[in-house]
């Protein structure tokens, strides 16, 4: 994807319009709008959602007509984009059954492998070190009450 370019304004406009449409549609379909006296839970999201939809369309049209701001997709750190959320989810999943230590190790491994030029050995060493510091501060320093070892390991 060497030469893939994206019109930033158009993309942003469409993203905003999408958000606006979703909020407005959810508010109109599922929530009471109420009256000016007793406004319902849907009134404010519906109004602001429509406004955002309008702004999104305006931004998109402007981007389509002017076409001067493009974004290169060349350098997108795909690995980090996948590994970061994955690491966070694994952390959340591992907390209860396996405990803080293992959950942190997993997260750190994911995060470190997202950095370009990371070797497995350096990744493991780095993860172990950060995990140790983190456990030291949060568990022994602050005593936040997250179990070091989870349910399955006790």
């Amino acid at each position: 994807m060497q030469n893939l370019k994206l019109n930033a304004d158009m993309a942003a406009g469409l993203l905003f319009a999408g958000f606006g449409a979703w909020f407005a549609a959810s508010a109109f379909s599922g929530l009471a709008l109420g009256t000016t006296f007793r406004m319902g839970p849907g009134f404010f999201p519906a109004a602001v959602g429509l406004l955002l939809l309008v702004f999104g369309v305006v931004i998109a049209i402007k981007g389509w007509r002017v076409q001067n701001e493009t974004v290169s997709l060349e350098n997108v750190p795909w690995r980090a984009l996948i590994l970061f959320p994955l690491g966070l989810l694994l952390f959340g999943l591992a907390m209860r059954p396996l405990g803080l230590v293992i959950a942190l190790l997993g997260l750190c491994l994911c995060a470190s492998m997202a950095v370009k030029g990371m070797t497995p050995i350096r990744s493991v060493a780095l993860s172990a070190a950060v995990t140790a510091v983190c456990v030291g501060i949060f568990s022994f320093g602050l005593d936040i009450g997250l179990p070091l070892l989870g349910d399955w390991l006790r």
């Binding site: 995060a111 470190s112 997202a114 950095v115 949060f138």
Partner: peptide, 19 residues
């Protein structure tokens, strides 16, 4: 070194928020 910072920020943010 930046890789250390990346990992530390991820770890601290996750533990802080999860706690």
């Amino acid at each position: 070194p930046y890789p250390v910072l990346v990992v530390a920020v991820m770890a601290f943010s996750a533990v802080g928020i999860y706690s």
